[in-house]
Simulated scan of single mutants.
Amino acid sequence: MSDEPQTPKKSSKKPLMIGLALALLGGGGGFFAVQSGVIGGAGPVEDHAQIAAVSDSPKLSFVPLDPLIVSLAREGGRDHLRFSAQLEVVPEFANEVEAVKPRIVDVLNGYLRAVEVAQLEDPAALIRLRAQMLRRIQIVTGEGRVRDLLIMEFVLS
Rank of each mutant, 00 (worst) to 15 (best):
T7Y: 06
K9F: 13
P15E: 04
L16W: 09
L16C: 01
I18Y: 11
G19M: 05
L22M: 09
A23M: 13
G27Q: 03
F31G: 10
F32H: 05
A33Q: 10
S36T: 11
V38C: 01
V38S: 05
V38W: 15
G41S: 02
V45L: 13
V45A: 07
D47W: 04
A49W: 01
A49V: 04
I51S: 03
A52W: 00
A52V: 06
V54H: 01
D56G: 09
S57G: 08
S57K: 11
P58G: 09
P58N: 09
L60N: 08
F62E: 00
V63A: 06
P64T: 04
D66H: 08
P67T: 10
I69A: 15
V70G: 06
S71Y: 09
S71D: 12
S71M: 10
S71R: 05
R74P: 01
E75G: 04
G76A: 13
G77F: 07
G77H: 07
R78L: 12
D79Y: 15
H80L: 13
L81N: 07
L81R: 07
Q86L: 02
L87V: 09
A94Q: 15
E96H: 02
E96A: 14
E96I: 04
E96M: 05
V97T: 13
A99Q: 12
A99E: 10
K101A: 00
K101Y: 01
K101I: 08
P102W: 04
R103V: 01
V105Q: 14
V105H: 12
V107L: 10
V107W: 05
L108P: 03
L108A: 09
G110A: 06
G110K: 10
L112E: 07
R113F: 08
R113M: 14
R113Q: 15
V117D: 07
A118Q: 14
E121Q: 15
P123Y: 04
A125E: 12
I127P: 03
I127D: 14
I127A: 12
R128A: 13
R130L: 06
R130W: 11
Q132I: 08
R135I: 09
Q138H: 08
Q138E: 11
Q138D: 07
I139K: 12
G142Q: 02
G144T: 07
R145Y: 00
V146S: 03
R147S: 04
D148P: 03
L149S: 02
L149P: 02
L149W: 05
I151T: 09
M152K: 15
M152I: 09
F154V: 06
V155P: 03
